[in-house]
Structure formats: C-alpha cells, structure tokens
C-alpha cells in the first residue's frame, strides 16, 4: 500500500479518538452505575435507578433512530437517484419530473420538525395505530428524514466524476447499469458519510419526539430533567447524547474511510 494511504490511516485514528473515548466513558458510567453507589453528586449521577431509566431511554433512542434511518434510506435513496438522473444534461433528463421532485423535497425539508411531528399525527395513527410512544415517533422521524436523505444522496452522486459516467455511456451502459454499477459504487464512501449525518440529525430530532411522548433520551430529559427540575438527569442525558453522537460519527468516518479507494 502506498505512502499517502498510510498517512490517511494515522489521521483517521486521530479522528476516531473521541469515539473510542466515548465508548470507554459509556462503559465506565455503566459499570459505576451497576456496582456501586458513590457519595454526593457523583452518587446521584451513578444511582442505579437513574441508570435503569437512562439505559431504557438510550435503547429507545437507538431503536427510533436506527429504524428511521433505515426506512429513510429506503425512501430517500431512489428519490436522490432520480433527482440526479432526471436533472438537465444527465443520463435520463426529464425537466418536468425533476422540477416536481425537487419542489416536493424542498417542501418536505422546509417544514420545521416539531410542526411536522404534530401535523402528521393522523397519518401516524393510520400507520401504527397510535400517536404516542416509540413506534409512533418513528413515522414522523422517517417522513422528515426522507427528503433530507434524498438531498444527501443527490449531492453524493453529483460528486461522481462526470467523465466516469461518460466512459460508461461510451461503452454502451444503460441508465440502470450506470446507476447500479457506476454512480452508487463510486459514491459509496460519501453515501456512508451521508447516512452518518442523517443518523446524527435524527438523534437530535428524536429528542424532540419526547414532546409527543415518543420516549427516548429526549423524553427523559424533558420529563425528568426539565419538568421535575432534576439537573442530574438532564446532565446525564446530555452526556449520553454527546457520547452517542461521537460514537456514531466515529463509526461512520471509519466505514467511509475503509471504503474509500481514492
């Protein structure tokens, strides 16, 4: 392997340090909470009951974000691909379709999440049967993330060298072959980073889902930390969220880096 790649590896190790630190810190907190009761504020922060609630909320957040990201990819990926291929001068130009898609995506992206959350409650009920709880929060999270993912995918695919697409066209590749064999594989590292950004964003959004009783870390922070004036709960929730974001980002960076052949 050539020299620049080795350098790249050192840089990425530095980039992953916060993530590694995050995982270690989470493990230490978890261990402290389960085996001991420490005195003073430290005791409060590591009390077993708080930890039980934190862990339950943590997994709810993971579930909400994980499923939403997965569903948003399923919906947003094809949209993003179409946004690229139908644009003027691209492989299947269709100005009308492009305009419609682009407008719909922009409308989706311009609605504040907290409004969207409330506005689509009837739709949420239709799909999951209820508008309260973790499952119900997944619906607005997904709906909000689809247009976001579409734009992320669009920008990742637009970064693919035009010349490479042209080379494939010159070889007689069909639009479908170009999408599957050129655009998506060439954009893969950027797409992985895009999924990471989406996941981090949804972790933030999922905290707002607490406002409709969606569960998760945000819910915990609002109901216990804010409404019951428990500063220690608020603090721990924020710490766990910070660590979670660090870990997701580090894993995403690592995956993108190891897929990158450039």
């Amino acid at each position: 392997m050539s020299q620049p790649r080795l350098n790249g590896k050192t840089n990425s190790l530095q980039r992953f340090l916060p993530g590694i630190f995050g995982i270690l810190a989470l493990a230490v907190f978890y261990w402290l909470g389960s085996v001991t009761e420490l005195p003073g504020i430290l005791g409060n922060l590591t009390a077993p009951l708080l930890w039980k609630m934190l862990m339950a909320s943590f997994w709810e957040t993971m579930l909400m974000v994980g499923i939403s990201v997965a569903l948003a990819m399923v919906g947003g990926l094809p949209l993003g691909v179409l946004l690229v291929t139908t644009s003027p001068g691209n492989i299947t130009p269709n100005p009308a379709a492009y305009k419609v898609l682009s407008t719909v995506v922009n409308i989706g992206r311009s609605i504040p999440f907290i409004i969207l959350l409330v506005a689509i409650i009837p739709f949420t009920r239709l799909i999951v049967g209820t508008s309260i709880g973790t499952a119900a929060a997944i619906v607005p999270l997904t709906v909000a993330a689809i247009p976001f993912v579409a734009r992320i995918v669009e920008s990742a695919l637009r970064d693919v060298d035009r010349g490479v697409v042209e080379a494939a066209q010159a070889m007689g590749a069909s639009p479908w072959q170009i999408i599957i064999k050129v655009l998506l594989p060439e954009a893969l590292p950027t797409l992985v980073l895009g999924v990471t950004i989406t996941a981090v964003n949804l972790i933030g959004y999922s905290a707002m889902a607490g406002a409709v009783g969606g569960g998760g870390l945000g819910d915990l922070a609002i109901r216990y930390g804010y409404q019951r004036f428990r500063g220690d709960v608020m603090l721990m929730t924020v710490i766990v969220l910070v660590l979670l974001v660090e870990i997701v980002q580090a894993v995403g960076d690592w995956a993108a880096e190891s897929l990158n052949r450039k």
Binding site: D161, G163, V164, A167, A170, M171, P185, E186, R261
Partner: peptide, 13 residues
C-alpha cells in the same frame, strides 16, 4: 472503444 484525457476509470474498482 474510447479512451480519455483524464482516463475516467472507476475509482472503486
């Protein structure tokens, strides 16, 4: 067949 100034190879392959 066609070849190009900037080669236009697939970087992921």
């Amino acid at each position: 067949g066609m070849i190009f100034q900037h080669f236009n190879l697939l970087s992921s392959r």
